[in-house]
Design a protein around this nucleic acid. Structure first.
Lengths: 223, 223
DNA sequence: TTGCATTTCAAACAGTTGTATGAAACTATC
DNA sequence: GATAGTTTCATACAACTGTTTGAAATGCAA
């Protein structure tokens, strides 16, 4: 049980490389080169490549979920058991968007790794991923409490669309920048968060008594 | 220039396998087995694996774009140069959703292949993909004509979110079904199309007459 | 048929991948 | 400082990848 230094630097190097280049074209040899350790170290410390990926994913998954749930719980406590829907949605998509967009130097390797995992879905991860469903159910619960007269189906679709907009915007941020010739500023993360939350809120409250916060972000460009 | 039969069955087999299992784990040997041809036939007829993928993608890309643009053009002609925004959005996301969701037996291999291509983004495809931008610009143009007092930025974001919801729903259709315990019926394709179009339309038309509260304010308030 | 080009085929090739091995280097305990 | 246990290392291995080869089969014009 000695220094753990090798183990740790393998994990860090692997996460960085996977976040940057995806699972598809990162080999064990790339990882050990980045970590400055011997090739055999991976199998010695983790058993196999798949187990390394799995450990990486499980660790990050737990951390991410805890972060999101903390934000959610805080909001619900402040609201006496019910949080406004836009605050719930912000807790859901905010951390990921903030970790993956914005200026290069303050992007989070962890968030980018998790997005890769959610996109590429390599076998070792797919097996674990089902737990994420239980996690999403907690958000479903909060959304139900926030919008008690919305049907379940509407809630599910709202959550689906919120995640859709967040993830897709991250994945295709380059293309959106190019398409809009820079007019869409993906570096203004809070603006992006506000847009996603606003649209998702509209999707969830449409045809109801007008909500209070939504649509404010959109007004920004309306001039 | 003989029968082309080998060539054709390679293309068909490759498209089917890629659509089903993704580019990541389909080898040339898988393809030639599925197509009942010799291994060397791929390199003989296409030069390389990458060129096979590229040909597949270019062909489908042209066909898909033509289909979408035809729907768009028809709508604009009927409206005297301006089509309603929801009709435009429907032309954008309808064909893909219809081809990828719904009952198994009537799903389109072509549509599923294109979704794979849009997800995995393997090198030979990434190189070609930039043309798609020009194609999207035509939709941007139609949207501008439909909503002349909307700013460009909002149009871009609206398009981005529409594609986001459509693609994400296709990719994660299984998970949404499981999460909602079957309450979200992904086989009712027209319902899905209507939902995506409806939310995207709201995103593009909401809050037209609004104040100019900067987006940052919303971010601060939400704590 | 003969001759020539196209197409198919089995086999081999060179490169890369994840993994295994066994010896060497280290670390800590006595 | 000798010993036992852990960790590192260079190297080898077996499996798989896309690609090439050269001979066999086929098609087709003369």
């Amino acid at each position: 049980m000695a220094s753990d230094q090798t183990r740790t630097s393998i994990l860090a190097a692997a996460e960085r490389l996977y976040a940057d280049r995806g699972f598809g074209d990162v080999t064990l040899r790339d990882i050990v080169a980045e970590a400055n350790v011997n090739l055999a170290a991976v199998n010695y410390h983790f058993g196999s490549k798949d187990e390394l990926i799995a450990e990486l994913f499980v660790t990050r998954s737990i951390a991410t979920n805890r972060e999101r749930l903390h934000e959610l719980k805080t909001a619900e406590e402040q609201g006496g058991g019910r949080a406004p829907i836009d605050v719930i949605l912000r807790a859901l998509v905010g951390p990921t968007l903030r970790g993956c967009l914005g200026p290069q130097n303050q992007r989070s390797t962890a968030a980018r790794f998790m997005i890769r995992a959610s996109i590429e879905s390599v076998p070792p991860i797919r097996r674990i991923k089902n737990r994420e469903i239980d996690h999403l159910r907690k958000f479903i619960g909060a959304m139900r409490r926030s919008l008690p007269d919305r049907s379940d189906v509407e809630i599910y679709w709202g959550l689906n669309f919120a995640l859709a907009m967040a993830h897709h915007t991250i994945r295709e941020s380059e293309r959106l920048t190019k398409l809009s010739e820079g007019k869409c500023d993906l570096d203004d993360v809070e603006d992006v968060v506000a847009r996603v939350v606003s649209v998702a809120t509209m999707a969830l409250t449409a045809g109801k008594i007008e909500a209070k916060t939504p649509a404010r972000a959109l007004a920004r460009d309306a001039r």
